[in-house]
Design a binder for these strands. Sequence first.
DNA 1: CTCTTACGATACTTATGAAGTTACATGATA
DNA 2: TATCATGTAACTTCATAAGTATCGTAAGAG
Lengths: 151, 151
Amino acid sequence: MRTDSRLSRTLHVLLHMARHDGPMTSEAIGRMLGTNPVVVRRTMAGLREAGYVTSEKGHGGGWTIAANLADVSLLDVHHAVGGPRIFAIGSDHPNPDCAVEKVVNEAVEGTLREAEALLIARLGAISLAELARSFDARLRARASTTAHTCG
Amino acid sequence: MRTDSRLSRTLHVLLHMARHDGPMTSEAIGRMLGTNPVVVRRTMAGLREAGYVTSEKGHGGGWTIAANLADVSLLDVHHAVGGPRIFAIGSDHPNPDCAVEKVVNEAVEGTLREAEALLIARLGAISLAELARSFDARLRARASTTAHTCG
DNA sequence: CTCTTACGATACTTATGAAGTTACATGATA
DNA sequence: TATCATGTAACTTCATAAGTATCGTAAGAG
């Protein structure tokens, strides 16, 4: 499988939306991500269902943030975009008859679950507001040089 | 992508090999895993290169364990089978120009790296010998009932 | 009212990589 | 020398995110 980049992409988009007055169109967001408006709508649909953004049709329409950045964690976004599979490795063949295989599966999957729990905890502990603050801090630190942004 | 099950499968095979007198053929291993001898050879090739198993051609040939179970960790096996990609999620687009994207990527990939480090540490801490001991313990605990094995 | 804009939805294609398959060469043993 | 087993290459299948094409629908502009 190709790397699932929905989380990163969506975070990128949300932070830009937060710094943007008025709605952003799927077209504009797609240009930002180097992709296509349909891909954008597909991913943003989950955020709309979760109530993090709203969408408007017609002239002046597009996507708008509808949540407080402090109230949305990276884990929330992960779930909103489909909560996709985290690991590329694992065991096919759950519930094996073979007792050897059971021991192996428990060891491997137990370890994966530990790593997943850590990942989930960390993603749940970071809010969009904190990412925005990191960005602002970086801007201030580099005030003398150029700060590039794709929006 | 389909789940990469090379680690689990290989561990399963190695533990069976450890309890088996004489070489096991790719044919027999394939039957055990519900797959094809060529898939078995492909995966076992990495273990042979790492020195964990040997292979012999001809009558009475097949695969034999060549290492002490206590000396091989699950991480070693993971590496031997190709050290495949662990995560299904991530960010495409490394080294972005956009400063917002940089902040996002650092947060997401930093978190993934933490989880990966934990996973690596845990896999490195478990030896094949420990899995074999877990299996034996389970056998003893269930001595009264049936203990199924696929080999 | 009509045209344009933008989302909504469906259906299809592309890309990627593990797994599966086919076929044949090579070496070891009986 | 016939058989068994690995070694290797080339190809197909499968799953899924991403990309694309197209049409429908709602909202504002004129």
